[in-house]
Structure formats: structure tokens, C-alpha cells
Write a protein that binds this DNA or RNA. Structure first.
Length: 562
RNA sequence: GCGCCUGUAGCUCAGCUGGAUAGAGUACCUGACUACGAAUCAGGCGGUCGCACGUUCGAAUCGUGCCAGGCGCGCCA
């Protein structure tokens, strides 16, 4: 729709150039926006304002010349020049409603592009270490990351979803020591409880399972416990698998899946870490000082140089990070997006600096990052900070248990990642329009309900039949709803290109509101007026398709009844 | 002290690659079911867009400087 109008305006511009009114239209692409105020028509352009200075004409005068130069068409019903020189377009009835036929023909493909295998993108998200249950921050990362993947897929990208974790570091040792202590009957109050031990109740379950010789199967590993509480390696291997299984179960309950689990230990095993260090040393990007090896990260915009190899010999955490991202690059992912909590944002400069130091022509801004801010959980007006199971934080499983998967996903994905998020348990539990999830799902269920009702009245009534009578849709509520449906492809594209899934949630809220207004204002099923009734059914069905598709992008279900 | 993020209606938040009278939900008032789902709708109330300069025909949006909050500034991950 916008494209068609753009084309008309281009022709008008060319006409003005031919007349000599404008000298050149090099590099000018008309900017067309949907209007916010219905009195401004449906679409508007600021073209005359932008060109006025160069043309040496008052904006309004230039606008009227532009309008006069517009080719004949059946798309624009009315043109106005308003304000300082905006050109407002009111679309014809047919332009509003033709999208309905398009949507019914395309079904769930409407607004989506086919995947092109050459558009490879790797998305890393969640990446929680296997030292405890997933917390709400991981949940936000899972919701945003998963929606990003769905959006990218919908816009033609071939997406590879990856989960990276450390299975061998000091924190894992702390985990094993904690399980061992619990297996020996110690508690965090005991004098011999390990320093920095994990205190949550899940460690008790884990210790019991290990002693009992349980077998566990996670998405990326299987193991049977030896039950030997003196063998720390046995405990470590079992504990990692056990927590991975728990995280998998939570992610599955949340509707999130991965194509690959990438282990930090594999980077040491393959020699990738050593190779990375050698490359940086050979490239002259390092120096030794105080017994440690340093990366000259200040060469690449960091505010200080960073230690790579500690005095005692081990590498700092970001070295395998660099090796990991180098691996992504070598795998051919020239587009990579990392979704992670903003508390790790300082790693961005370091990882990019290390990659620059490899002198391989990796772009400075690679990889891309989406950072989410913290989540605060509120209930009964007070912050919820603790969970018995995890000890010091609220878990993703808690949220799912309290408010369900749909509400959890929606609330975690519906806000801009850059904003801190307050998760209101009471609001998420409300089953009314206070709760946007139910509001949107209700619109979907309502359409399903009215379609069934239509069939009860007359077996022959179907949305498809309404396509022959779209010209009967003349009411403002009908045209406003139909116009909103035409925006869906633009919204999907915009959300994907800006990596902002919350746009989808806002859009769906608007569509649901327009549908409810339409539904309340007009009788849908009128036995005396079959053409109009079926046309309205077609509009309702098109709305349902869009809502269903948008909810799918968010990973939220679209129930036929509630 | 430095870096990143945020500051918009009582509350939760959109709008931020500059555009017209700043939006939505909620809360608080009024109304609408002998109709297809009232889990809904219609209307009202409510804002110096943190503050101040600047750029521009035009600034919530861009720039600079302040103020306030969050998160980072480890030879932890």
C-alpha cells in the first residue's frame, strides 16, 4: 500500500521536474507515514516540507503542485493539504478492504517472507551456567531471544539458535562441593560448609539424586550417578547434567528450544583457546606485565587493557569468549546476535577487541548485541525477592507456575529490552482487559465463536463467501480495522530489523482493540443481509489470522475458546 | 570518578532513524446486554514529555551540560 503510494509520488515528482518546478529529485525517496489522527486521513507525507527550501517555494504551494501532478489512480479517495504543508491521503474503500482477500489467501504466511538459506544468522541467548535453576532474568532473555528468532525467521533469515555454557570452571567446582556437602548432611549453617557454596534447596534434591544413583537425560547429555560422594569429578558431571535437565524442562515448559548447546570446555579441548591466544600474541596485540599476559584492548576502544592469562596461569573468562565468537565467525555466521543481560555489557568491548586483534577482517560492530535490563517481580504491592528452591532469586518456573506460560512470555517480551521491567504477578493473573494477554486472546476466541455461530445460522455462511461483498464494508470501524491489518507486514519487518519484539505486542493490542470496537458497534450476523454478514465474517477471519500469526511470533497461544 | 541503560498521566508503559492537538492500559467518574462471548464497548477526568541551553520551518525524539535511579567498571564468570 505504501509502496503503491510511493510510486505515485515518484511519478508526481518526475512530472514537476519535467515542468521545471524542481531541479532534481536525485536521492529523494518520499517518506510516507500512517497518520495518528483520523482527521488527517489515512496516510501522509512531509515531502513538500522537505523539498520546499530547495525548490524556493512555500511548502503549501509546492504541496498543491505535487497533488496536481499525481497520476490518476483508484487508490486515493481524497487528498488534503494541511498544517504547514503535509499532504494527507484518504484511501478509497477498495484500498482499505482488498487486504482481506490477500490475508485469506495467504493464511499464516501473510506478513512473512520465505526463508533464504543464504541469510544465515546465529542467535545466542539464555546461556545460563548449569549451577542453578533459571531465574526471571534468564526468562526475559529466553522470551526476547526466542521472539527475535521467530521474527528473523518470519523475515527470511535462516536462524541457528544456540545456548552457550561453562561446564568446567570454578563455579562448577563450587557446585560440586556444595552437592558433596549436602550429601554429607551438612547445611549452609555448618562450619565446614564450602565457601561460596550454593545454598538453594535444589542442591539437597541434587545430592539425594546423586546418592541414589539416579540416571538423568538432558538435551545435550546423559549420565548415571556413581553415588560415590568422595569423587568430586563424578559429582560434577552428574550435577551439570542434572541442572541442565532441569533447565531444559523449564525451557520446554516455556516453549523455547535450541539447535545447539555449546560447551566452554570444548574450546579448551579443541585447542581453540590456545590458538586464539597465540594469534593475539603473534599479532603484537599483547604484552606481559606483572607475570600476567595482557591484551592491548585499548587499541580497540576499551578504556583499559585486560588480563588474558593470570599470574597463576589460567585464562580469564573473556579469552574463551573470544575463541567462541571466532568459532562462530569461522562457521560462516557473518551475522550473529547475542541476547544477554545488561549486567554483562562490559564484555562486549572486550570480546570485540579480541576479535579485532585476530586481524581477520571481522567487522568492528560484530557481533550484534541485544541487552535486557533487570526484572523486578511484584506481588501484592511488594517486591518478591526470594524463592525457596533457588534461595536468592525468583525462578522462571515460579513465574510459569504462578501465571502460566502465555502471560509470562507476553509480559517478558512486551516491554522494550532497554527498559527495566516490573513483572506484576497480580496483573498477569487478572482475566480481564487489564491483562493484555487475555484481551488479545479473547479477540481471537471471539472470532472463532462468531464463525461457529454463523454456521449454525446457515451452513453456507463462510468468510470466503464474503470476499465477493467487500464493497459492503463502509463503516468507520470496519475500515479502521482493515487498515490496521494492512500494517502487519510493515510491523513485522520493522520489529525484526530493529530487533524489538515488543512492537508486536503493542500492535496486537491495537488490532484487538479495533476488533472489539467493530464487534460492539455492529451486528455481525444478520439473516436479512447476507452479503454484509459474510463480508464482516471475512474481515473477522482476516483479523483472526493476523492475531494468530502475531501471537505465534511471541510464542503465545491463540485459543479458539477460553 | 568513568562507561552503558532509563526518566513521558496517580500507577505500568508505548511513541525516540524530528513532523500536525504527546498515546494506551490501569485507577477514578458517566453510560451501553430480552443481540452473535459484558473476559467487551462508548464517553469524561488526568501530562511544564526530569531540568536548562542549543540545532531546526518544526524537538518527547538530535547535540551539550546538569539532576535522579538502575547496571557495570576484578589477575570473578
Amino acid at each position: 500500500m505504501k509502496d503503491a503510494l510511493t510510486s505515485l509520488l515518484q511519478q508526481a515528482l518526475q512530472q514537476l521536474v519535467n515542468e521545471g518546478t524542481l531541479s532534481s529529485i536525485e536521492g529523494i525517496s518520499p517518506q510516507i507515514d500512517h497518520t495518528r489522527d483520523p482527521s488527517h486521513g489515512d496516510l501522509a507525507t512531509n515531502l513538500a516540507l522537505v523539498l520546499a527550501k530547495g525548490a524556493g517555494l512555500p511548502p503549501r504551494e509546492l504541496a498543491s503542485k505535487l497533488v496536481a501532478a499525481l497520476p490518476d489512480n483508484n487508490m486515493i479517495a481524497k487528498t488534503d493539504i494541511a498544517g504547514p504543508g503535509f499532504i494527507n491521503f484518504t484511501l478509497s474503500q477498495a484500498s482499505h478492504t482488498e487486504v482481506i482477500a490477500m490475508i485469506l489467501a495467504a493464511g499464516s504466511d501473510y506478513g512473512r517472507a520465505p526463508v533464504k538459506t543464504e541469510n544465515k544468522v546465529q542467535v545466542e541467548f539464555v546461556s545460563a551456567n548449569p549451577t542453578g535453576p533459571l531465574h526471571v532474568g534468564h526468562g526475559r532473555g529466553a522470551a526476547i531471544g526466542d521472539c527475535l528468532c521467530r521474527l528473523l525467521t518470519a523475515t527470511g533469515w535462516d536462524v541457528h539458535r544456540e545456548f552457550y555454557y561453562n561446564d568446567a570452571g570454578q563455579q562448577i567446582t563450587n557446585l560440586a562441593l556444595s552437592v558433596q556437602a549436602r550429601a554429607k548432611g551438612l547445611s549452609p549453617e555448618s562450619e565446614s560448609w564450602p565457601e561460596d557454596g550454593y545454598q538453594g534447596d535444589y542442591i539437597i534434591d541434587l545430592a539425594k539424586a546423586f546418592v541414589a544413583g539416579d540416571a538423568v537425560s538432558a538435551a545435550d547429555r546423559d549420565i548415571t550417578a556413581s553415588g560415590n560422594i568422595e569423587n568430586l569429578d563424578d559429582i560434577r558431571d552428574f550435577a551439570v547434567a542434572w541442572l541442565r535437565r532441569e533447565q531444559d524442562a523449564d525451557l520446554q515448559a516455556f516453549g523455547v528450544s535450541f539447535d545447539e548447546y555449546f560447551l566452554e570446555s570444548s574450546l579448551y579441548a579443541s585447542g581453540a583457546v590456545d590458538t586464539t591466544v597465540e594469534r593475539l600474541v603473534e599479532g603484537g596485540h599483547t604484552y606481559e606485565d606483572g607475570g600476567a599476559l595482557w591484551l592491548k584492548s585499548t587499541e580497540f576502544g576499551d578504556d583499559k587493557d585486560r588480563v588474558m592469562r593470570k599470574r597463576e596461569g589460567g585464562y580469564t573468562y573473556f579469552v574463551p569468549d573470544v575463541a567462541y565468537h571466532h568459532d562462530k565467525w569461522q562457521r560462516g555466521y557473518h551475522r550473529v546476535i547475542n541476547e544477554q543481560g545488561a549486567d554483562h555489557h562490559s564484555t562486549i568491548t572486550r570480546v570485540r577487541a579480541g576479535l579485532q586483534g585476530l586481524d581477520e577482517g571481522i567487522p568492528e560492530g560484530w557481533p550484534e548485541y541485544v541487552l535486557h535490563q533487570m526484572v523486578t517481580v511484584m506481588r501484592n504491592g511488594a517486591e518478591v525477592k526470594l524463592s525457596k528452591r533457588a534461595g536468592s532469586y525468583v525462578t522462571l518456573r515460579d513465574l510459569i507456575d504462578w501465571v502460566g506460560r502465555d502471560a509470562t512470555r507476553f509480559f517478558l517480551a512486551a516491554r522494550a529490552a532497554t527498559s527495566q521491567l516490573t513483572f506484576d504477578i497480580d496483573l498477569a493473573l487478572t482475566q480481564s482487559n487489564e491483562n493484555p494477554v487475555f484481551y488479545i486472546q479473547y479477540a481471537h476466541a471471539r472470532v472463532c465463536s462468531v464463525k461457529n455461530k454463523a454456521l449454525e445460522i446457515d451452513q453456507a455462511w463462510s468468510p470466503q463467501r464474503g470476499l465477493a461483498h467487500l464493497e459492503t464494508l463502509q463503516e468507520s470501524e470496519e475500515l479502521a480495522l482493515a487498515l490496521a491489518l494492512t500494517k502487519y507486514p510493515e510491523v513485522v519487518k520493522g520489529a525484526a530489523s530493529r530487533l524489538e519484539p515488543h512492537d508486536i505486542a503493542n500492535y496486537l493490542r491495537d488490532v484487538a482493540a479495533l476488533f472489539h470496537s467493530f464487534y460492539n458497534a455492529h451486528k455481525m450476523l444478520d439473516a436479512e443481509n447476507q452479503p454484509l454478514s459474510t463480508a464482516r465474517l471475512a474481515l473477522a477471519e482476516a483479523t483472526r489470522v493476523v492475531i494468530s500469526s502475531g501471537l505465534d511470533l511471541l510464542g503465545v497461544s491463540a485459543p479458539e475458546s477460553m
